[in-house]
Amino acid sequence: MRLVTGEGYWSPLAWLAAAAGVLLLAGLLWSRGRRDWKRGTEEELPFLSGEAAPEGARVGGQHLYWGFVEGLRPYVERLRAFHSGFVADYVAWFVVVLAMALLVAMV
C-alpha cells in the first residue's frame, strides 16, 4: 500500500491515520472550550472591525484572498495583455512555439 515517489513513498492510508489523530486532538481541544455563549444573540454576528455590518452585505468569492490577488494583479495584468483574443496573435504565438521546436530539433 505504498507508492514509491523517488526519494520516499506516499501511503494514503497512513496519512488518513495521521489525519484521524490530528482531528482527535483538535476535537479534544475544542471540547475544552467555553460553553456559555448564547445562541441567537449578537454574539453570533460576524465581527467586522467592531462596526455594524451594512444591510445585505455578504462576503463573496471576490473578497477572499483579497490582498493575495491584488498583490499579484500587476504581474497578471501584463500576462492578460497577451491574451488579446485576436486570432492573428494566437497564430503568431503558435509560430513562436513552432520556431522553438524547430530550433531545438535542429541542434
Binding site: 512555439v97 513552432l98 522553438m100 521546436a101 524547430l102 530550433l103 531545438v104 530539433a105 535542429m106
Partner: peptide, 10 residues
C-alpha cells in the same frame, strides 16, 4: 529533424 520540429510544434 525538420519533421520532428514540425510534429512537435503542431
Amino acid at each position: 529533424r525538420i519533421a520532428l520540429g514540425l510534429l512537435l510544434g503542431g
